[in-house]
């Protein structure tokens, strides 16, 4: 079963991770409510553990946001205080006692995952498109046309992983998140590095 553990206390998160993983669960940690919402929307978790008091976005607001967006998978609240928010499937008292948690976990089931259908001809067509995009990026980098350059990077980031090219998507994501902090004089160097990394991906 895949668990998302939203908790701002890193030590508590590590402890939970150790206990849950040794019992055969997979755990991803989210350090605040904002990250928890983003992770939950990936729909890869069977169950979410949500601390109530968290920075940026508290656990009750994060749960409410997800429910407003139709998220219907189980969410468990964790709190030392009473939880009044409506929408949680269960409330666990903090500090968590692993034997109790484990017992409660048996009530929940893993949600079967379905594979995305990717017809070979569509993947092939996208591959051609991605290669053309990379060629375009080479030209735009030479012209130092960074607006158009980053627009294509953004598109690759959003689309490549859907077409089984997760590594390309990750590289684009990395570049995009760093881009604003890169001084103007360094942009060509960073762009060239990105393009070399993409080449090394060997798109096929």
């Amino acid at each position: 079963m895949n668990l998302l553990f939203a908790e701002d206390d890193a030590l508590l998160a590590q402890l939970f991770q150790l206990q849950a993983e040794s019992a055969g669960y997979q755990v991803v940690w989210a350090e605040n409510g904002d990250v928890a919402v983003q992770q939950a929307l990936s729909y890869q978790f069977d169950l979410i553990f949500m601390d109530i008091q968290m920075p940026i976005l508290d656990g009750a607001s994060a749960m409410q946001m997800l429910r407003q967006l139709g998220y219907d998978r189980p969410i468990i609240a964790m709190s030392a205080e009473e939880v009044t928010a409506v929408g949680f499937d269960l409330v666990l008292k903090k500090p968590l006692q692993w034997p109790e948690v484990q017992q409660q976990l048996t009530k929940f089931k893993a949600i079967p995952s379905i594979a995305l259908e990717l017809p070979p001809e569509l993947k092939e067509a996208y591959l051609v498109h991605a290669k053309q995009s990379l060629q375009q990026l080479v030209i735009l980098a030479e012209q130092q046309n960074w607006i158009d350059f980053m627009a294509i990077v953004h598109q690759l980031k959003g689309s490549a992983a859907s077409f089984d090219l997760a590594s390309l998507s990750q590289l684009a994501d990395q570049l995009q998140s760093e881009w604003k902090t890169i001084p103007a004089g360094q942009k060509t160097k960073r762009a060239t590095y990105f393009l070399e990394q993409c080449k090394a991906c060997k798109l096929k």
Partner: peptide, 19 residues
């Protein structure tokens, strides 16, 4: 009504259709 974060997965799309 809902929010999907790319990349697309069948699980995300199905969740939306059930909704």
């Amino acid at each position: 009504a809902s929010f999907i974060v790319k990349p697309f997965t069948a699980d995300k799309i199905l969740a939306v259709l059930k909704q």
